[in-house]
Amino acid sequence: MKLKVDKKLCQGHNRCVVLAGDLFDADDDGYAFIVRQPETEEEIQLARRIVRACPERAVILSED
């Protein structure tokens, strides 16, 4: 399982940072990056929510 932000798609909407500040942060330019991978089942659920919340479909959670 790997959580990623596609930098080419991210436009800095910051939904991810607001909704899951433990997993995402914004760099100085406002683009999102992953702080750490989700660990607990709860965090994985949260990560799945963020995949749905991003307006640019830039958050990717590969399930393998």
């Binding site: 436009q11 800095g12 909407h13 910051n14 939904r15 406002g30 929510r49 749905r52 919340a53 991003c54 307006p55 640019e56």
Partner: peptide, 20 residues
């Protein structure tokens, strides 16, 4: 509401710079 992927700030490369 979830998700709330509204386009009030636009979307894509011209999306509002002042949104934050």
């Amino acid at each position: 509401r979830f998700p709330n992927r509204h386009v009030a700030f636009g979307v894509g490369p011209h999306r509002c710079l002042g949104s934050n």
